[in-house]
Amino acid sequence: MSFEKIRDPRRVRHWKGDMECDYIYTAGIAGEKFFTTIRDKAKLLATRCAKCKITYLPPRIYCERCQASLDNWIEVPKTGTIETFTTVHMDNNGAPLSKPITLAFIRIDETDGGLIHEIGGTKPEALKIGMRVEAVFQSKSKRTGALTDIKYFKPV
C-alpha cells in the first residue's frame, strides 16, 4: 500500500496533536549587557578579541576563533551598511501580509557583525545594497530590553 500521492495527512486516518510548551529564555551574560544598554542608553555594545582582531556584534563573552573569554566591551556607532535586503510578503504560516515588510542585514560600523532588522522611513524601491543606514530607537518609556527597542533602521 502506498500513500505517496497523498500530500495532506488529514485525508488519511490520522491522530491529531500538538507539541505545546512555553519557553522563557534568559539573554545570557552577553545578551543581558547588550539589551539593557540598548534599553537604558540607546547605545550598541560589542566585544572585541584583540588577538583575532574580531569585533562581535551581537556581543559574545568568548571568541569563536580562539575560545578566549572576552571582557573588552566597546561602544560602537548606531550606523551601518545594508549588506543585503528582502521584502517579505507572507507571515510565518504562509498567509499573505496586508503590508509587506522590508528586512535587511545591516553590518554595524566598526564591527564584524551586524543585525537583521526592519527598514523604515523609505520605500523598498529606493533601497540598494551598500546603502548607509542608522538605528531609530523607540522612545525610552517604550523600551523593554529587546531587539525591538530599535524601531527600524532608516537611510542616513
Binding site: 539573554a27 545570557g28 568568548y62 578566549a68
Partner: peptide
C-alpha cells in the same frame, strides 16, 4: 543558570583546554 547554552559550553571548553594546556588551534 543565567548563561545561554553557548556561554555554558564555552566555560566548559575553556576549562578543558586550559587543563590540557592546549588552545583551540
Amino acid at each position: 543558570l543565567q548563561e545561554t547554552g553557548k556561554e555554558l559550553s564555552h566555560y566548559a571548553v575553556e576549562m578543558a583546554l586550559d587543563s590540557a594546556e592546549m588552545t583551540r588551534d
